[in-house]
Computed example of a mutant assay.
Amino acid sequence: MTRGEPVARIDRISVDALDDRQLEEVRENVRRERDAEAGRPLTVAVMGCAGVGKSSLLNALFGTRLAVGDVKPVPEKPQAVTVPGNSGHQLTFWDMPGIGESPATDPVYAAMYVEKLAEADVVIWAVHADSRSAAYDAERLRGLLAGVDDEARRHVMGKLTVVLTKADTLTPPPWIFDMRGREGTFVPSAQLAGRLEAKAAYFEQALLEPWDDLLTATTYNTGGFTLSDGRIGFDGHAVRYHGHFSQRVCDAYSAAHPEHAEVFNRLRDNHRVLPCSSLFRFNLAPLLVIVVNKLGPTAIFRFQRLLDDVAALGGVPVAAMRGFGNFMVWDGVRGVTAFDLGQYPLHPL
C-alpha cells in the first residue's frame, strides 16, 4: 500500500440489510456448522509408559483384540477402536505406543503424542498402579508440554484423566470376589481400598497439582445451578471450575452447597485419579462415565447408549475368576501337597 492510498474499510454487515434469500443463506450456513460440530467424531487418546496396560484396558472395555505384549511393547503405531453412539455419532479411542521403550523410538513416539494431545478430545494417561515413583511420568508430561504456550497447555491439561492400571497387582491385602450365581465382581478389601486411595492421592499430587493454574474442571449443567465465584461459574450448558478440583475443594463446596453435591462430584471426576484393573474388570464403568463427562455438555446425550451398557462391564464369570491364580503349599519334608486352592470346588447357584 502506498502513502496516501485510501484504506479499505470492512464494516460489520447488519442482518437488517440482508434480503430474505441472503438471510436464509446465513441461517443455512449456521445450521450446517452447528450440525457438523454436533456430528463430529470424538476421540480419546490412551497414553503412558510402555507396559502399563493401555491395550489391555481397551480390550476389557470394548471386547477388542488389540495386540498385547508380555515381553516387548506393542503397538508400534497408534491403533484405533471406534464405538458407536446415538444417531450415528462415533467415539474413537486411540491406543498409543508406550513411551520409555528405547532412546531410538522415544522421539518418534513423542511427536505422535504431541499431535494427539492437540487433537484428542480426552486424554487418558495410564500409570502402573504398583509404581512407587511418579517422577518419570511427571517428567515426560512436562517434556511433552515444554514446546507449547500456556493456552495450549491449559487446553491439554483440561483433557487429561490419570488412570492407575493393573490395580490387581496390589496384593496383599486381598481382593474380594463377590459371587452372585455364575458371575461376580471384584472389590478391594477395606485395607486394600485404603492403599488404592493413598496411591491415587500420591499420583494426583505429583501429576496434576503442579498444573493448578492451568487446570479446568467441566461438567454438564442440567439446570438449577446458580453458584458463581472467583473460580466456579456456569452457563446454560456447563459448569466450570478454574483450577485443581481436589477432594478438599469438592468437600468444601459440597458442605457449603449440599444441593449441588452431585455437580461437585462430577467436577471432582475431572481430576480424580482412578485405579482400574482390566483383568478384574474393576472400575471400568466409572472410567467410561468420567470419559463421557469430559467430552463436553452434549456428549452425555450423544453417547447415552454407551453408558447404558456400563453396568455389565464389571461382571466376571466364576469360571474365569478361578483361572486368575492359585495357591499351593508343598510339604518339602514329606514330599506331598499340603494345600491346593484349586482342589476346593465352587458351586455357583
Rank of each mutant, 00 (worst) to 15 (best):
V263N: 05
V263S: 05
N265C: 05
N265L: 08
N265K: 10
N265I: 04
R266M: 03
R266S: 04
R266L: 03
L267M: 07
R268C: 01
R268D: 01
D269W: 02
H271M: 13
H271N: 15
H271Y: 08
R272S: 08
V273G: 10
V273A: 07
V273S: 11
V273F: 15
L274P: 07
L274E: 06
P275W: 12
P275K: 06
P275D: 05
P275C: 08
P275N: 10
P275T: 00
P275F: 09
C276A: 05
C276N: 09
C276D: 02
S278C: 02
L279H: 08
F280L: 10
R281W: 02
F282S: 06
F282Q: 05
N283R: 11
L284E: 05
L284Y: 03
L284D: 01
P286Y: 03
P286E: 06
L287T: 09
L287Q: 05
L288N: 03
I290N: 04
I290R: 10
V292M: 02
N293Y: 01
N293H: 05
N293M: 01
N293E: 15
K294A: 08
L295H: 04
L295W: 00
L295A: 04
G296R: 01
G296T: 03
G296E: 02
G296D: 01
G296N: 04
P297W: 01
P297L: 02
T298M: 00
A299P: 14
I300E: 01
F301R: 13
R302A: 12
F303M: 10
F303C: 13
F303N: 11
Q304R: 08
Q304T: 01
R305T: 11
R305D: 15
L306R: 07
L307A: 13
L307S: 11
L307V: 06
D308M: 09
D308Q: 11
D309H: 14
V310C: 10
V310S: 05
V310T: 15
V310E: 05
A311S: 15
A311Q: 08
A311D: 12
G314M: 06
G314R: 10
V316E: 07
V316K: 07
P317S: 09
V318T: 13
A319T: 15
A320T: 15
A320K: 14
A320P: 00
M321H: 13
M321A: 15
R322T: 09
R322N: 13
R322V: 02
G323Q: 12
G323T: 11
F324S: 12
G325L: 11
G325N: 11
G325R: 10
G325H: 09
N326K: 06
N326E: 13
F327K: 06
F327T: 12
M328S: 13
V329Y: 00
W330R: 14
W330E: 10
W330P: 00
D331T: 04
D331S: 05
G332N: 14
G332A: 05
G332W: 00
V333G: 05
R334Q: 13
G335K: 02
G335M: 06
G335A: 07
V336P: 04
V336N: 07
T337N: 07
T337M: 09
A338R: 07
A338Y: 08
F339A: 06
F339E: 10
F339H: 12
D340M: 04
D340I: 00
D340Q: 08
L341M: 10
Q343R: 14
